[in-house]
Nucleic acid binder design. Structure first.
Lengths: 335, 335
DNA sequence: TGTTAGACTGAAAGTGCTTTCATAAAATCG
DNA sequence: CGATTTTATGAAAGCACTTTCAGTCTAACA
């Protein structure tokens, strides 16, 4: 056989002196072929290390015990933590996990529409990705069970958090602590159009409560910053170097809060006396850093998503679930 | 069209009055087809809800433009960072990435031997997983290009780091800083048998240098701790509460170093004056925390792995590569 | 002993795509 | 305006199998 090529059914046929039909038969309905021929074919198969291609797939197509996760930014801590939750319950239920990182709209559509993957997977968890009607329909038409996280669609299961409320929680906490000059730092501007922007909602909730309390939130206290360390640190620097810096900063993501902490430390500002800092997410590092934050229970949301998905796979006519998981203020040392 | 059947390119061709070649073209190289025809085809595609079948596609194309990563602990920071590197170069090269989390030996063997997955993938990156001869042979026999990270095998490409040297670097640095009582904290005991244990090598390198310098490393200064926060903190606590605590601690992983930092802070020990701390890996947070550490350039190793893999896919008769990536001491504030 | 029902097996026709090759039509040029 | 590119398209040949159909043998039955 050609040195570096994978053997095909034809090679096996040649090697064992029968036709490809027979090979196919010993693979798919062994009882229909003469035991002796079968043995000969088998030994050829072993010898050549032949692995049927389409067959494996076709077989797998029925039920794969494997679920897929579509996610952007899969290396960001918050996504990783959700994935961890998913992985945990999946492995308990003896399901395999496959992660498809999505880094562009086409990519997403490619994955969703090219239901090909899907034939490899019993269900789909879709994280922080905007699914439009067309895509939802596609999933539905192909009866692909799925659950969305951080987004929702009437026709699909979903798990969301109340970002507005999260912002409110942060604001209330800061007000209770007696702050009068508070700033917001986050990635308000849509980072990429395929992703969701919960940050805006967090901002709105935050702002609303301040307004209700008669506390102004001047423009200079609202900083746009991407998730990169540089961007956040730059924004933090500006904020803290203001002639009259805020006494508290609400960062829409823990990673950003941590950047702020770093800058504050460099500027020798004491936390929380000079600046209080509150984050959002409660990623692992937040605890290491003793960061006060709004916990959205990332692991749990992953776990929940997986559970819902699994239950819908087992019993496909279950009613859709739209879950809103609770947010919780975790007070630590930075406020 | 028949009611319950999924449309094929033939249906689309019929519906839009062109040949299947043209359909294939608008799907794969849209610029090669007349804009108007393209529009007509597109609308047919939408109308029929046509989705190309991956299986057929892969068969005809002989490749999938998708590569797989087998990895344990995929949520641990160091793994995530490597994955980030992989993802970066892959997406540049227009390859899709699929991550298969491996959490048991059977899992690994299942993935590797049940080459069905493999039909889905043009190549494999295998992280921190011990591959035995049988598995290597299987990969080889199926001419599945692959590269190992943090492990090596004569028949497969590999990227390794010199863990022993890393331990030595840490030891030398601490000695230079004038320390006389140094401790080691790490997960020396094999966590699970399918994973690799680079920690032991780091320990050995560390110990060797201390010995050479005539500095003792008593048993009580060698702490076994798993990667969990509790375990590491517990170990750190023991260490720091010793009647004569070490003046410096080498943690075999940054996450553990960070746990130590936290405990030290709680005990009001000053870093680095009371205890110096040096980690290993240089994960993202290390910089946030100003942790001195041994950088193993995780992103880079991922990038490199992907590059090697890709180059071997393009040109399958390239010679095997066994790369050892350099380690580097990053001095920050904790030593 | 002549039939005949099975049991085996191969030829060949799908399967749903990609891609090469050829050709027709349109655009460019001297 | 004829010659030459260029562009747009279709026919047809794969790819790696599955499956149907029909033919060959053989063993069993009358």
């Amino acid at each position: 056989m050609p040195p570096n090529k994978k053997p095909t059914i034809y090679d096996v046929a040649k090697n064992s002196g029968v036709s490809i039909s027979t090979i196919s038969r010993v693979l798919n309905s062994p009882d229909k072929v003469n035991p002796e021929t079968r043995r000969r074919v088998m030994s050829s198969i072993d010898k050549l290390g032949f692995v049927p291609k389409a067959e494996a797939r076709a077989r797998a197509m029925q039920h794969t015990n494997r679920i897929g996760v579509l996610t952007p930014f899969f290396t960001a801590p918050s996504f990783v933590q959700r994935l961890r939750g998913v992985a945990a319950t999946l492995s308990k239920a003896n399901y395999e996990l496959v992660i498809y990182p999505v880094d562009s709209v086409e990519h997403l559509q490619g994955y969703i529409s090219s239901i090909p993957i899907m034939q490899n997977v019993d269900g789909l968890i879709i994280m922080s990705l905007a699914i439009d009607d067309k895509e939802a329909k596609r999933l539905h038409d192909n009866s692909m069970q799925s659950v969305l996280i951080e987004y929702s669609h009437t026709r699909l299961n979903s798990i969301e958090i109340d970002d507005v409320y999260g912002g409110q929680l942060a604001a209330r906490h800061l007000i209770e602590k007696g702050h009068k000059r508070m700033a917001f730092l986050g990635d308000i501007e849509p980072p990429e159009k395929y992703a969701i922007h919960p940050v805006k909602s967090r901002y709105q909730g935050f702002k609303k409560i301040l307004e209700d309390a008669g506390i102004p939130l001047p423009k200079k206290y609202v900083m746009q910053a991407s998730y990169s360390q540089e961007s956040s640190q730059q924004a933090a620097l500006e904020l803290l170097n203001l002639p009259q810096p805020p006494t508290a900063i609400f960062a829409a993501a823990d990673i950003q809060a941590i950047s702020i902490m770093k800058v504050a430390r460099q500027l020798k500002r004491h936390i929380p006396d000079d600046v209080a800092i509150i984050g959002f997410d409660d990623i692992d590092i937040a605890e290491y850093m003793d960061l006060t934050t709004i916990r959205q229970n990332l692991d749990e949301s992953g776990r929940l998503a997986a559970e819902i998905l699994l239950s819908h796979i087992v019993e496909s006519d279950r009613t859709l679930q739209h879950i809103k998981i609770p947010l919780q203020l975790i007070e630590r040392q930075t406020t």
